[in-house]
Design a protein around this nucleic acid. Structure first.
Lengths: 242, 242
DNA sequence: ACCTGAACACCGTTCAAGT
DNA sequence: ACCTGAACACCGTTCAAGT
């Protein structure tokens, strides 16, 4: 789990000589966009994506929902700010020609892990062109890495779109699937699903029946993610100029 | 645009001797799960995904929201039923070894187009294992097509997951992007975005600056979709047993 | 059995009023 | 300027009551 936070020190204990604020809003830092985003991450981590509402974030800050709108234009911008932190936290290495395919793959894994660690953001990230400073910095470095693969510019541009889309979509899917399920619940769900597929009439669904075992064996999402990733990166690398 | 409907005849004129119902709920077919799904598709087509609420669907049927719950367990099931129609409408051809890669690609395109034509369903489809009759039939035929590629069973299983995920994610992204935008608005948005990227400081984002032209030229989502599709299918085909 | 009005427990957002 | 209570216009879902 990646911990994402701004540089604020609000969890440090108060120095004894610090003026205590009158209670009402407890001794918290004053509101700011960063504080709102911090609170949103706290809510997300503590109660999951379904609890991530303006009202719940306001509660986290001991205030009413209207107060947030002085620092954030709305829920969409709040999500964008959260996404920008996650995107900005992704570290893209300096290109090393010897390890190029592995470097690209690791970046995509990091995008995947970043969104998987913060369920609810993957969905909000799809269909948007990132314009935040964190995302732009990461994208620029990622473009730099891709360009080191000696690819035509057009392939670089396509790859820079498709690889993050793959990582984001996979994280969205995986996050929804695992979301709010305990280990035990997930196991139960898998068993039920397995039972359902085994109970299907084989004459009507012959291919499902023939593949039930291997379809059921897919409780390794990582292997499936790697399978698709390997294909995409291999395909991209194959377009290198000679 | 794909038209999806059940076999009901509700748009036929009433025969003159047919008993007119007392007005209150106009002369409509009685409620049924299929009628609810029909109404939901009508709302989606007329007002887009944001309008697709239980309440709006109920209004379409001249009734209150509570009435829907006699035929559908909730919004999630309604979406599942809608998805099952879209999935069931996808036609998977009998395998033709000579045209195998093209056949697979066409199926993925059809999934993409199916979800693109019904925005809002792509998001709801992610992270779910399909269990409806329409989707199962399509999946079975798609598995049959994949198996004709002489692939190891495990590759068939992975491909059957990743290809629809790609199509669904792409449709989700594209649908969000295009969603509710007129042609003119979309063009304006592209211009603004182009302006934004050109205004970025080149020394801080050198790779974005170097690629602005080719990044901006990406107003051809179909080409990008095909680029990724080609890679995935080529990569899958390459795993055929010799 | 099927349908319904009314209510419950939520949303995001706005706005006039406070300090 | 920043914050707030209250309200507005929505949600999905439940439930007792109708027919």
């Amino acid at each position: 789990m990646v911990f994402v936070s701004s540089g604020s020190h609000e969890d440090l204990p108060l120095a004894p000589w610090a003026k205590r604020r009158r209670p009402g809003r407890s001794a918290r830092a004053p509101l700011s966009p960063a504080a709102v985003v911090d609170a949103a991450f706290a809510v997300l981590a503590a109660e999951g994506p379904n609890a991530l509402s303006m009202r719940r974030v306001a509660l986290e800050l001991d205030t009413g929902p209207a107060s947030l709108y002085a620092h954030v234009s709305g829920k969409e911008e709040l999500l964008d700010l959260m996404i920008d932190r996650v995107a900005g936290a992704i570290e893209v290495p300096d290109p090393d020609p010897e390890r190029w395919p592995e470097q690209v793959k690791q970046c995509v894994r990091d995008i995947y892990q970043g969104f998987l660690a913060h369920p609810g953001l993957a969905a909000a990230n799809m269909g948007k062109v990132p314009t935040g400073p964190g995302a732009l910095a990461t994208i620029d470095r990622f473009l730099g890495l891709l360009r080191a693969g000696n690819l035509p510019d057009k392939v670089v541009a396509y790859a820079a779109d498709i690889l993050p889309l793959y990582a984001t979509a996979y994280a969205f899917e995986q996050g929804l699937f695992a979301g709010g399920k305990t280990e035990e619940e997930a196991l139960r769900y898998y068993e039920q699903l397995d039972g359902f597929f085994r109970a299907l009439p084989a004459e009507r669904f012959p291919n499902i029946a023939a593949l039930t075992d291997v379809l059921a064996g897919e409780d390794e999402p990582d292997a499936r993610f790697e399978f698709g990733l390997e294909m995409l990166v291999t395909g991209i690398a194959a377009q290198a100029r000679r």
